[in-house]
Design a protein around this nucleic acid. Structure first.
Lengths: 180, 180
DNA sequence: CGGAACTATGTCAGTTCTGACATAGTGTCC
DNA sequence: GGACACTATGTCAGAACTGACATAGTTCCG
């Protein structure tokens, strides 16, 4: 029973061999906008994947007291990942602290609420600008089959999300200014 | 140190007194689209909130072996909730299994991917239709101060989210049909 | 009249995730 | 020459969450 985190690691390794450190770096907040994990989680998960035979590694001399371990997918690992991709996703519960705050907002100070949503809007706009730069760098959808297609499709989702979110924040600020 | 779940419960109790069961019902998947919790989590959290003096309860004869407990906010509870609303939200990690699958999609069978995204699109369209019915039922933004304002604002976020998501699914299906 | 669904409480084991602690070499900046 | 960041591994305690188990009265449908 590989967890979703396990498949996230397999998905990263499908792009090429990596150390645990590399995987952690690519799944670090807030860099990765669709899956995050700390290095402690990744090291323990890699040990499970190894026990299940989904990954293997080669050692190299590393900086610390332990050797560096370079992980790669096994044939079994690739097959497991391929099968999982088209399995229906198990529904993760929506848990959105900002919307929860909004739900209870009638109790709060309107001026503080305006600050809250202005901050959020700024964050979403900054991330949107960053994604737009990334989109420009790719320059349009690569063909399906190109591994960068996955990056582009995920980026596309992020763009839509940030636009939706920014628009909602603007609507909120609009509502709040009407209550003056 | 009240957890976000604790504040979610306080936010529900701000609408009126409830039993643990009622709170669980209003936070049940997939009904609540911005915070979910099982009843087991809620009962333990209510005990913590009680120990902190943020909620109180009165007993009434209940159906089961235990008495029914009707919870309400204390003055301290209301104050804690009010303060929390305008605190900056602590960033919850984005974890999106569907986008993760998309990221690795180059490995998968395109026909199965089309089925996956067609299913997801149908789900988002169904939820969108439901939210649109709810919006019509409210009939436009209530004034700020009206407790239903919170419901409307949260609904508004849900509407935007489902639209963004459905559009992305449509784009994905478009991309996948091009790869025939 | 039996069975299912609903109301209502709670426990518990197991999984997942977070954040701190621990170790250690190399390179960079002041 | 010292401080800090980066590379690289790992452990561990505790919080948060899930899903099953346990109990028991009422109400509704067939």
């Amino acid at each position: 029973m590989t967890s979703t985190l396990g498949f996230a690691i397999l998905a990263v390794l499908a792009r090429g061999e990596r150390t645990g450190y590399d995987i952690a770096a690519s799944m670090r907040r807030p860099l990765s906008y669709f899956w995050t994990a700390g290095h402690s989680q990744i090291h323990t998960e890699l040990q499970k994947l190894l026990a299940e035979g989904l990954v293997s590694y080669e050692t190299e001399a590393g900086p610390g007291p332990q050797d560096k371990k370079i992980y790669r997918l096994t044939g079994e690992g690739t097959a497991a990942l391929r099968g999982w991709i088209t399995d229906p996703p198990r529904e993760r519960p929506e848990r959105d602290e900002l919307v929860l705050k909004t739900y209870a907002a009638a109790l709060a100070d309107p001026a503080a609420l305006r600050r809250l949503f202005a901050d959020q809007l700024a964050k979403h706009e900054a991330r949107l600008a960053e994604y737009e730069r990334e989109e420009e760098a790719i320059g349009g959808p690569p063909g399906f089959g190109d591994p960068r297609w996955g990056n582009y499709a995920a980026l596309r989702c992020g763009l839509g999300y940030e636009r939706h979110r920014a628009e909602w924040c603007r609507w909120m600020l609009d509502q709040l200014s009407e209550s003056l």
